[in-house]
Design a protein around this nucleic acid. Sequence first.
DNA 1: GAGAGCATGTAAGAGGTTACATGATTCC
DNA 2: GGAATCATGTAACCTCTTACATGCTCTC
Lengths: 185, 185
Amino acid sequence: MSLKHALLGFLRRGPQTGYTLKNEYFDKSVAYFWPADQTQIYKTLDKLVDDGLLTSAIQIQSGKPNRKIYSITKNGQTELENWLKEPAEPAPYRDSLLVQLFFSENIEDSQVIEVLQASHAKHEELLAELTSIKLPAIAKCSNKRQLSARLTLEMGLKKEQAYIDWLKEAIAAIKSFERKAKRQS
Amino acid sequence: MSLKHALLGFLRRGPQTGYTLKNEYFDKSVAYFWPADQTQIYKTLDKLVDDGLLTSAIQIQSGKPNRKIYSITKNGQTELENWLKEPAEPAPYRDSLLVQLFFSENIEDSQVIEVLQASHAKHEELLAELTSIKLPAIAKCSNKRQLSARLTLEMGLKKEQAYIDWLKEAIAAIKSFERKAKRQS
DNA sequence: GAGAGCATGTAAGAGGTTACATGATTCC
DNA sequence: GGAATCATGTAACCTCTTACATGCTCTC
């Protein structure tokens, strides 16, 4: 379970609340390769406390809701370190767009292309978002934290670029097949 | 839910049993972009019957267990067609290897590299599997079913290749960072 | 005699999503 | 006056995985 370990990973850097973990940490960095929603983060934090990997303390605030601050325990740190060294299976890949394309034989070409183009637009947006993230280039990273952040971002860029390239190719292939079919009819 | 629609998609081509759907159809084609295990396929087929999108009939066999043959209904066909035309959100991406890399700052380089190399080996295997699938090239496809199968396979190849390229880059970057750090100490 | 293939199923649980609730403060 | 921010939580649900069970036949 990676959510668990991502939480341990962030808390290894210092105590923090669920709210901040979600809005500042997850959504602004790992969300690209491990999105997590609020409910699940809170639930998992509770579980980690139950398991003795975290402790929590309440910080009273006036005017604002109280905060619940989580800290990693010794056990939490060993658990994290062990997990980080474990070779894992490749991530299962699930992409409904490919399912749609795979079974599209009875759908009109124009409609298939519309679906692909909608996806193209969304992936361009994603790519733009990732491109706007400013991190030092690989060769300019001055510590390991920076380097690994850069490398994961690099994967994001590569993946989106490959996806977009493929979408263009697919759209072109369908159009060209359509033209070929028309000539023959 | 794509599993549901993948099942409808296959059954749209003709009646079939859960067993065959799993072993011949899923595992040999869509598994790459929509893996599904046996239990879930059976459960989903049941649900589709409940919802009136499929019907089932039992075929008695001697010597072998009886088979339950599912057929798509009119409602099932419309449901499938509508779904195929619906633009969808980009697939959420979850990759625990990136989580591991992202939080690896306190792990020794050699161990991080081991994890990456293990992943590299697995992805080479995956790529080899996909490469062994024989399908006509894009320009040689003679019908839409072939073309869409080819295009989804093309995505698989592209994705695995990009992943492998990235892994090599990441490994090289970590090694080079390590050398730089040593020179400075 | 062991194991693979055929074929369907139950039960339990992990992981993730959706919808909703609370209540003060700050900003337009 | 309405929306956004801060901050935590409950309940119900969907999807997917793991472990296990049955029982006959065919092949090595």
